[in-house]
């Protein structure tokens, strides 16, 4: 096999062009502004499980989140971006360390409203292969109850660790959230219903990332965060965005503990100025293409995958 050759057929590149056109038409019709933000920043995104790639004195962004939020703080209104993002070590059949993300923000919206828009857009983008795409809504607790028989908000750390160890066939020495990641990725995701857009929301408060916290109907503190799964694969992650600068700074300090990475002072300053109430979401476009083209490996939708880059 010649490694100079592309990993995707020409038809996949045509499909990608159409996908981008549909997205741009969709947002143009709704007066959402397309923006570009820097790929190289002075501070990386603070996320304990996402490793940024350093380029000289700068960091390649792992998502355009911070810069886009600064635009929101500056009052630029609804915005979207299609861009490459970079994550160290994420390579596999469904991952490429350099991949394409669609990220957008809706000012004054709740994450529930945004979930409806995500569903509408995905139904449109996937229509060529899936004419009818029903939506299914589950809370994180319901998903774990239904597909792993675990009561996540009341289950002991030991019970969760025990299940995780069974699934991993090893003691990986993880904390509660780490074992929940094992259960989610090994047991729940593969069991989710197929040929439907599955929305999971109300994540544990400890997995809030940049989402606001709130009490749910049962009085349990949860993160106003959602993920979208399709045929057992995660496609998107969205938040009711955290607007409180002080809480944001605390999360930064917690997440960057023990690393040499700086936190993004620009974002904190912008939040101090004021982030309007908003909801935002990031959608992996290579995976949308994967489903659209019924491909088994992300390489089949990339002109040159990681091995050939």
């Amino acid at each position: 096999m010649s490694t100079w050759l592309p990993s995707a057929p020409r038809s996949a590149l045509v499909a990608r062009q159409q996908l981008y056109r549909h997205i741009r038409e969709y947002f143009h019709a709704r007066s959402v502004l397309e923006v570009e933000t820097p790929l190289l920043s002075q501070a990386p995104v603070a996320d304990p499980n996402i490793i940024p790639i350093q380029a000289g004195q700068r960091w390649l962004h792992t998502s355009p989140e911070y810069a886009m939020k600064r635009l929101l703080c500056a009052g630029y209104g609804d915005i979207y971006q299609i861009c490459k993002v970079f994550r160290e070590g994420e390579a596999g059949k469904r991952h490429n360390p350099e991949f394409t993300m669609l990220e957008w923000y809706r000012v004054g919206w709740t994450h529930r409203q945004l979930m409806d828009e995500v569903a509408e857009l995905l139904q449109l983008l996937l229509a060529a292969r899936f004419s009818e795409l029903p939506c299914l809504h589950l809370t994180y607790a319901q998903a774990l109850q239904q597909y792993a028989q675990l009561d996540v908000h009341h289950c002991s750390d030991d019970a969760i660790a025990q299940r995780g160890q069974q699934l991993a066939n090893a003691d990986l020495e993880l904390d509660r959230d780490g074992w929940l990641d094992v259960i989610m990725s090994h047991q729940v995701e593969p069991a989710l219903p197929h040929n439907a857009l599955v929305f999971i929301d109300q994540f544990p408060a400890s997995q809030a990332a940049l989402a606001k916290l709130a009490n749910n109907e049962q009085g349990v503190l949860i993160a106003q965060r959602f993920e979208v799964f399709f045929n057992g694969m995660e496609l998107a992650n969205g938040y009711q965005e955290l607007t409180n600068a002080e809480q944001q700074l605390q999360r930064f300090q917690h997440e960057l503990q023990g690393t040499e990475r700086p936190h993004d002072a620009h974002l904190i300053a912008a939040l101090e100025h004021g982030l309007p109430d908003c909801a935002g979401v990031a959608l992996g476009l290579d995976r949308v293409l994967l489903h659209l083209l019924d491909a088994q490996n992300i390489a089949q939708v990339l002109s040159f995958d990681w091995q050939r880059a």
């Binding site: 596999g92 990725s185 090994h186 997995q207």
Partner: peptide
């Protein structure tokens, strides 16, 4: 066979 799995904001694993 190797499968790289990673819940979006979660930890990465190799199965």
């Amino acid at each position: 066979d190797i499968e790289f799995v990673k819940p979006g904001k979660g930890q990465a694993f190799s199965r």
